[in-house]
Amino acid sequence: MEKNTHPLLLIVDDSRMSRMLVRAIVADSRPDWRIAEACNGDEALQIVAEECPDYISMDVNMPGISGLEAAGRIRIRHPEARITLCTANIQESTREAAARAGVHFVAKPITAQSVADAIAFFEA
């Protein structure tokens, strides 16, 4: 089977509203992207094991493993995946941890602007 050429974005967030917001904004500006969702880090790892997404939007504070840990594990196996941490945890320590993990930091709330920032990172 041929690889699907449409980029796959995985949205990982325990908030359904946040997932819906990111999905709606991305679907509007990048209608050809495929979008998958996970509501925690463990579920994200399962999805990544089946098909590694091109892009991942990852919350930090979720039930189970943290988004930072999930992002770190994904980066080990799939260094090519572009990951943004999309989080309300706006402390300098989180920004530094994101930089150390090689992922892009995007502060919540989710707005057209913050999603555009993430998309710009994905496509850079």
Binding site: S15, M17, A88, N89, P109
Partner: peptide, 23 residues
């Protein structure tokens, strides 16, 4: 369910800001 989720997420953003100030 969606109202509760929305409110939880809005407060989550709020406490995130508070944590940054407290830190």
């Amino acid at each position: 369910e969606l109202q509760r989720d929305a409110l939880g997420e809005i407060f989550n953003i709020g406490v995130g800001r508070a944590a940054a100030s407290l830190s």
